[in-house]
Amino acid sequence: MTIKCDELSNDLLMDVAGRLVEPEVLDQVTTHLSGCLSCGERYLEVKQIRETTQIALRAMPAPALDARVIEVTGKVMALKRKTSRRRIVAWILVAAIAAAAVLAWALRS
């Protein structure tokens, strides 16, 4: 099966450049590229865009961000603990009131 020029979309060419396609698709595209000058040129441009993009869009945040994230998640954790403690206290209170009610009812009858 042969592949035609209009079937070679840029996304497919980029996948071919990154070797992210099935071997048989790779074979078909490579065969087409070796015999088609305009697609071959486009492939080289796409390949270069892909390779340069991988370098161009690389970034690392400043080390100070680590401290910010640790602080923020620490606050979330403290809030979670507080909420959890409140929930426990609320349950104890409900249980105590229920027990008192049962006791009062038992004493009256």
Binding site: L57, R58, A59, M60, P61, L65, D66, R68, V69, V72
Partner: peptide
């Protein structure tokens, strides 16, 4: 952190905003 920062920076085009997005 690096991947999310790069992604946010690509979208926002501003390092301070990108750090806020990561946080």
């Amino acid at each position: 952190k690096g991947r999310i920062y790069s992604f946010a920076l690509t979208l926002l085009r501003n390092p301070a905003d990108a750090e806020d997005a990561v946080q």
